[in-house]
C-alpha cells in the first residue's frame, strides 16, 4: 500500500517536474534517458548474464536512422539540399517535424531490431569474455565507420532539424519523451520478467549448458532478448539525437566512453538482474555525476573514476543484491513447512 502511494506520488512529481524545476529540465531528461539505457542493458547484461559492451551500437544506429529520416523525408529536391549544406539544419513546419520524428523513431526501432537479429545470429553463440570483447569492438567499429560516411555528415557530424516554433519547449517535449519511454520500458520489463521468458533468461544466466540439455531453444531466446534491448535503445537514440541537437559519430552517437559504460555501471550499482536496480542505480549515478561536474570541475573524471572503483569493490552485487543478502526473507527466500 505504502509502496503504491509512493509510486503514484513519484509519477505525479515526475509529470510536474518541467513546471517545478524549469531550469533542470534537460538534466532531468538525461536522468530518464539513463534509466532507459540501464533498464535495457540489464535485460541481457543482468537477467541473461551476457555482459555486452556494445549496446551503445543500437543507440547510435537509432540516432542516425531517425536523424536521416527527419532530414530527408520532407526535403527531397535540390532546393532543400542547398539549405542543408554546410551543416545548416533543416527547418521544418510543425506537422512536418512531428510526422518525420514519428516515422524516424519507428524506423529506428525496426532497424535496430533487425540489426540485433542479424548480429545475434553471428555473435550470440559466443559466451563470457569472448562475447564481451566482441561487443566492445562492435561499438568502436561503428563509430569509426560512421565517421567515414558522407551521407550522415562523416566526422563533422549531423545537425538534427530545428524544433518548430509554437510547439512549446523542446526540452520539455523530450523530457516527456524519455519519461514515457522509461515508464513504458519499466512496465514492459516487469511483465516480461514475470513470464516464462523471464525464467528462460535467468536459466541461461545460471547455466546455459543445463538449459540446452533441458531442451530450451537458447539461441532463439537470446536473440529475442537482445532484440528487445535494441528496440528500446533505438527509440532512446532517436530521441537523444534531437535532445542534444548535434550528432557526433564518436562523442554522441556511438559514445562508448560515456553512456556506453555508464549504462553498465548504473546496473552494477543498482543490482544486476533486478527490476528496480537499474532505475535506482541510474538515478543515483547520474545525480552523483552531475554533482562532480558542478562542484569538482577539473577533477570530475578522477572523482567519477574513484566512484566506479568504489562501486565495483564495495557493491559487487549492487544495492538490490546487498539488500537481498541482508534480508533474504523480504525477497521470498524462506523455508516453508507444509501446513
Amino acid at each position: 500500500m505504502i509502496k503504491n502511494i509512493a509510486f503514484v506520488v513519484g509519477l505525479l512529481l515526475s509529470l510536474a517536474a518541467p513546471y517545478l524545476f524549469p531550469t533542470y529540465v534537460t538534466l532531468l531528461a538525461f536522468v530518464w534517458l539513463m534509466v532507459v539505457l540501464s533498464l535495457s542493458w540489464d535485460i541481457i547484461g543482468g537477467q541473461m548474464g551476457y555482459n555486452s559492451f556494445g549496446n551503445i551500437f543500437f543507440f547510435g544506429i537509432g540516432m542516425y536512422v531517425s536523424a536521416v529520416v527527419q532530414r530527408d523525408m520532407f526535403s527531397s529536391g535540390v532546393d532543400r539540399f542547398a539549405d542543408v549544406a554546410g551543416g545548416v539544419a533543416v527547418r521544418l513546419s510543425q506537422s512536418e517535424y512531428f510526422i518525420s520524428l514519428g516515422v524516424g523513431v519507428v524506423l529506428a526501432a525496426v532497424i535496430c531490431v533487425l540489426a540485433a537479429i542479424l548480429l545475434g545470429m553471428a555473435i550470440l553463440s559466443m559466451r563470457g569474455h569472448y562475447f564481451a570483447i566482441c561487443t566492445l569492438g562492435l561499438g568502436i567499429a561503428a563509430g569509426e565507420i560512421a565517421s567515414g560516411i558522407d551521407y550522415i555528415g562523416a566526422g563533422s557530424g549531423m545537425v538534427t532539424p530545428i524544433y518548430p516554433e509554437g510547439a512549446g519547449s523542446r526540452e520539455a517535449f523530450y523530457y516527456y519523451y524519455f519519461f514515457a519511454l522509461s515508464v513504458g520500458t519499466f512496465l514492459l520489463l516487469s511483465k516480461i520478467y514475470k513470464s516464462r521468458f523471464g525464467l528462460v533468461l535467468n536459466a541461461i544466466r545460471d547455466d546455459e549448458d543445463k538449459a540446452e540439455a533441458m531442451g530450451l531453444h537458447t539461441t532463439r531466446y537470446k536473440t529475442i532478448a537482445w532484440s528487445i534491448a535494441a528496440f528500446v535503445l533505438g527509440i532512446a537514440g532517436a530521441g537523444t539525437g534531437n535532445l542534444v541537437g548535434f550528432i557526433d559519430p564518436i562523442d554522441v552517437a556511438f559514445t562508448g566512453a560515456t553512456f556506453g559504460v555508464w549504462m553498465i555501471l548504473t546496473v552494477i550499482l543498482g543490482g544486476k538482474g533486478t527490476l528496480w536496480g537499474p532505475v535506482i542505480g541510474a538515478v543515483i549515478f547520474y545525480a552523483t555525476k552531475e554533482f562532480f561536474w558542478t562542484y569538482l570541475l577539473g577533477w570530475q573524471r578522477v572523482a567519477l573514476g574513484l566512484l566506479i572503483v568504489v562501486i565495483v569493490v564495495f557493491f559487487p552485487t549492487g544495492i538490490m543484491g546487498w539488500m537481498r543478502e541482508r534480508w533474504p526473507h523480504r525477497f521470498g527466500e524462506r523455508v516453508e513447512e507444509a501446513s
Binding site: 525464467l199 528462460v200 545460471d206 543445463k210 533441458m214
Partner: peptide, 19 residues
Amino acid sequence: FQQTRIYGEMNCMDNMRIS
C-alpha cells in the same frame, strides 16, 4: 550431470517451472 547442474540464482520452484 555428474557435476550437478541447477540454476543456482533461481529458487527451486522457478527451477522446476522452467523445466
